[in-house]
Design a protein around this nucleic acid. Structure first.
Lengths: 120, 120
DNA sequence: TGCTCATATGAATATATTATCATACAACAT
DNA sequence: ATGTTGTATGATAATATATTCATATGAGCA
């Protein structure tokens, strides 16, 4: 039957399903989007963002101390954040200072904060 | 030494570290926050949100057809969304219709969309 | 040059997450 | 009652992720 898909389902409301399907198809950036949100879906990364948001820029070592974690763990997470263009950095001698890339990061962070404060 | 922590780090800029530490401590909802953002950090859940956003409300079966996935997989994800209060539902006979819980979900989704369209 | 410190990174381990599979339950039709 | 359909769920297997560990690189200094 036409309205039966490989997934063992009978389609009940075909027109609605078609609208939903088209809507999903239109957004070709789900992969990027999920990677973007994944950034905020980790306590360590949230804390790094929070710290950088508060003090502007910090070196790897200080972030590690502030979060009470190893420098290696922080470095791995900074790499993730860097690859997803959420932070930028500036070299000063041996040290490398990281800071938030733009206001979107702050916006998202604060929107999440507001949402949680409202339902709580 | 006072400025050496268990994590093999030497604290370089103590005042900055203290500010960051306090800022992190103030936010006691990192756990909730990361769970909230985790919702958006999965392609399946993003698609469900996208579909519900577009057509208002859908039953489990139709969501499964629209996403071309099994009903079981969808049901598990709906449970996750339900537990985190991002969707609500209404029973009609055998069917259960799911819809987005409030505008925050839509807001976050669209903010992510905007962010990605700008950097791209 | 050799040493120390700041940072980066590959591999391995530990943990978390997702989809599948089997099954259960509830509503409806016959 | 029995069978069918829509949904839910526990257990498992497959996959992804985070941290640790060992090691590497690179800058500054003695």
């Amino acid at each position: 039957m036409e309205n039966k898909c490989k997934c063992d389902c009978y389609c009940l409301y075909k027109d609605i399903v078609d609208i939903a399907k088209n809507s999903i198809k239109k957004i070709k950036i789900f992969d990027n989007m999920y990677t973007f949100f994944k950034t905020f879906a980790d306590v360590t990364r949230l804390k790094i963002i929070c710290a950088l948001d508060e003090v502007g820029s910090m070196c790897v070592c200080d972030i590690a101390v502030a979060l009470d974690m190893t420098k290696s763990a922080i470095s791995h997470q900074l790499k993730f954040l860097k690859e997803n263009k959420l932070i930028k950095y500036q070299k000063k001698g041996k040290e490398i200072f990281y800071s938030l890339a733009d206001n979107h990061v702050k916006d998202i962070f604060e929107l999440g904060l507001n949402h949680l404060q409202e339902i709580d």
